[in-house]
Simulated scan of single mutants.
Amino acid sequence: MKDRQFGRTGRVVSEIGFGAWAIGGAWGDVSEEEARGALHAALDAGTTFIDTADVYGDGRSERIIADVLKARGGERPYVATKAGRRAVPHVADEYNRKNLTAFVDRSLQNLSTDCLDLVQLHCPPTEVYYRPEVFGILDDLVQAGKIRNYGVSVEKVEEALKAMEYPGVVSVQIIYNIFRQRPAGLFFREAKARDVAVIVRVPLASGLLTGKMNAATQFAADDHRAFNRNGEAFDKGETFSGVPYDVALDAVEAVRKLVPDNVTMAQFALRWILMEEAVSVVIPGAKNAAQAKANSAASDVAALPAETMEALRALYRERIAPHVHQLW
């Protein structure tokens, strides 16, 4: 497993991390045994970065992580969590001192630690990025010793650019994959210039870029790929990267032709992301040990040739960008 610098934090993390949404909920049934097995497999493969959130399974994801790390002992990996989506209603005014402090205190308990490595505002309303007092609260939580660093998880490139104006923001989590290429422009340049860590989520476009889905694929009722295709529960860009399912399936077949032998499409898609040096860590999810192990192996895939990269840029421009580029 190769490592990368995590922005200006002084930390070095594995370039492939573990996205812990799937072991919390909203991805169909994942047993605790499978969840623990997936996390153990990722850690065994050299993963040193775990990303979770307080709302993944209402804390289930955080608690499983704490239990696994306690059982393993040794040096603790870098654990990033998120705060804000517990607010009801989810509006800017709820990002206040009382709520953020309570959310952080709950995550401290769930993760069985006295200080959180990284707390990210969890895709807050855009207005939050224009409220300096919110970031002041996070500064105070750092001073209080409850969090070491803070960052943001965003939906839009514009939100990322605004967030980086705050000196305390050390990281930005954003969707970036073969079907969501806009961050590779101005955002990546600014992140590099400011030495802000970039965490890439939804790297496989909710599984589309595994190449294992088709028009007949069925999803469980509690899987967001069944209930959030049009943004019924949260931003639709989180589900299949916002690309219409039929359009995406056709594009997947074009991608498939570019995948080299002895590499899975998922590993190919992850390696494509890692071609961008502004990326600090990519966080694919895994429901079981086999998926986690396969994701980790993408770190060993050879660099993609220039002609492949250009073919994927062209595919995006011609087939995908009209559906997503200006939305996020």
Rank of each mutant, 00 (worst) to 15 (best):
M275N: 12
S31L: 14
G231C: 01
R76E: 08
S280P: 05
L69S: 04
R36A: 05
V263I: 15
R72N: 02
D195C: 03
P167F: 02
P305A: 13
V79L: 01
K82A: 00
V55A: 02
F103K: 01
V119G: 00
R4G: 03
V263C: 11
K70N: 10
E165V: 04
F240W: 10
N295S: 13
R72M: 04
V282T: 15
A163G: 06
R8S: 15
P305V: 04
Y56T: 05
P132Q: 07
E75G: 09
Y316F: 14
G237Q: 12
F227H: 10
P183G: 06
G168Q: 11
E277H: 11
I64A: 01
A266I: 07
A254N: 07
G17L: 03
P244N: 06
G207I: 06
V104P: 00
N295D: 14
A248C: 10
A92C: 06
A87P: 01
F268M: 11
V154F: 07
Q181F: 00
A278P: 03
L208A: 14
I147T: 04
F18K: 05
W27P: 00
S107Y: 12
L39F: 04
Y95E: 01
G10V: 11
F188P: 04
A71H: 00
F49P: 07
D67Q: 14
T47P: 04
S112C: 13
A45H: 06
K293P: 05
L270F: 04
C115T: 14
A297C: 03
W21Q: 15
L204R: 05
M275S: 14
E62A: 14
D58V: 02
A191L: 09
A53G: 12
V128A: 01
A35T: 11
K146I: 01
G25V: 09
C115R: 15
R8N: 12
D58S: 10
V91Y: 05
A87H: 04
D235K: 04
C115G: 02
K192Y: 02
V91L: 13
K236E: 10
L315K: 12
T9C: 13
L39G: 11
K146G: 08
Q218P: 00
I320M: 01
F49R: 10
M309L: 15
D67M: 02
I50R: 01
R201K: 15
M164P: 08
P260Q: 13
D300R: 12
D250Y: 00
A254V: 07
F268K: 09
A298L: 13
G17R: 06
I178E: 00
D58F: 09
G46I: 09
A303V: 12
V200R: 02
S206F: 08
G237C: 06
E165T: 13
L209F: 10
H323A: 08
Y130L: 04
P244G: 02
A38I: 09
L141Q: 08
R63D: 03
R189W: 01
A45D: 11
G237T: 11
W272M: 07
D235E: 10
S241C: 14
E159L: 01
E159C: 05
G59N: 12
A45I: 04
F234D: 13
Y130P: 00
D246G: 02
G237N: 08
V279K: 08
L161H: 03
I273V: 15
D300Y: 05
L258C: 04
E155T: 08
I273Y: 10
I199Y: 01
V30Y: 13
G207Q: 11
R182Y: 02
V243D: 08
K257T: 10
E307S: 11
